[in-house]
Design a binder for these strands. Structure first.
Lengths: 206, 206
DNA sequence: TTCATAAGAGACGCAAGCGTTCCGTACGGA
DNA sequence: TCCGTACGGAACGCTTGCGTCTCTTATGAA
């Protein structure tokens, strides 16, 4: 937020005005910042406008209500859909996937997502956006990684299931919820080596 | 909430008044119900009072502010600290532990906890209560279960770690966050058989 | 039965945010 | 350079919840 404050203050010189996309991006920044600091319920149009150094009218000109603004901001700020990694080993692939997750979670966007957790059961709009942009692609990539690992003989075939694919990400999220950010690289490595890989070992039940 | 409405309506007959503990319990019911339905931020003293069929004065007579009321309600409603299960097998023990978790999560208290997820980073009071009453005891019990399993030879000794102990609960929570309640018994069984047990197997790397 | 206590109900002034409206003006394409 | 667009900013009336206060009266211990 401080890294954002500088450019915002820079454009503070009275008489200067942004429009179109530039203004919109500033508004999205303000929304994400608010989500991460005070949360969705306490996010107000007034404060978003003030933070983005614009007027409420400019918000209502674009979005009819708070919810649509937030969903739109999420859709513009959630990480893009990536290709699954292919490092040659399951360990490398899983490490890479959880590493990406770690970066997202440690970013302002991650804090924003976290603050929406409590609204999940009530506002399906957010969870739908997060689902489509974060959860689903990540799950698909993890399954792909497991499948390739099974083909290479690194992973026992029965371990290629949704629940197994979820276990790594679930632990990362769990750590985030319990300990708060940031998730360290060591934590991710421990999750991979202590939990995910032992679960995949093909050399059991010979 | 409807199951609560009946007795509340029963005591609605004008002229009747509750005091002391009876009233307090009704207030806690209202708080938990509000947490589960509208969430912490949208929980208001006015609505809690109305739901509990009392006046705001009776709330402020006991608690100085919303936060203390909620923390107190949580401390009175969170599940009691149980003894670790001892069914004789790791599978039985883990199944029992996650089963207890499932019951809590599917209950109104579970929905209340869930709604506090978003406030976790901002309000340490809640998370401290949930931590001390739910997370920590559960983690300790799971470690105990793993330790006993290791003694019996059911669990490889290196698997007796915090992360391993967390993986089952983390998956239950994850499922809850992604799919919403209720968590089914089948889901818990699948988590145990597909994820937890394979991770514990001692018969690998002979 | 008496009586101090506290419950239940409502009104209070206050503050914050809502969504709308207005207006002067910086911006940027023609 | 000109001019329509839309931005920035402020004010509007409205609603909701806050926390306090008052008043009547049910309650339960003495």
């Amino acid at each position: 937020m401080d890294l954002e404050a500088a450019p915002e203050n820079a454009s503070l010189c009275p008489g200067t005005r942004r429009r179109g996309d530039v203004l919109e991006q500033a508004i999205f920044d303000a929304v994400l910042d608010q989500l991460g600091t005070v949360g969705y319920d306490a996010l107000t149009m007034e404060r978003v406008a003030a933070d983005a150094r614009t007027g409420k009218a400019s918000l209502y000109r674009r979005w009819p209500c708070k919810e649509e603004l937030v969903v739109d901001a999420l859709n513009h700020r959630l990480p893009a859909l990536d290709d699954p990694p292919d490092t040659g080993t399951v360990r490398g692939d899983v490490l890479e996937l959880l590493g990406r997750m770690r970066r997202t979670i440690n970013s302002p966007t991650g804090c924003a997502i976290q603050s929406l957790m409590g609204s999940v059961q009530r506002d399906r709009g957010f969870i739908r956006a997060v689902h489509a942009r974060v959860i689903e692609p990540r799950k698909r990539m993890m399954m792909e990684v497991l499948r390739r690992g099974a083909e290479r003989g690194e992973v026992r075939p029965e371990a290629v299931t949704m629940l197994v694919a979820e276990s790594g990400p679930a632990l990362v999220v769990h750590r985030f919820l319990v300990d708060g950010p940031p998730i360290t690289r060591r934590t991710v490595e421990a999750i991979v080596d202590q939990v995910v890989l032992p679960m995949l070992r093909p050399d059991a039940r010979p």
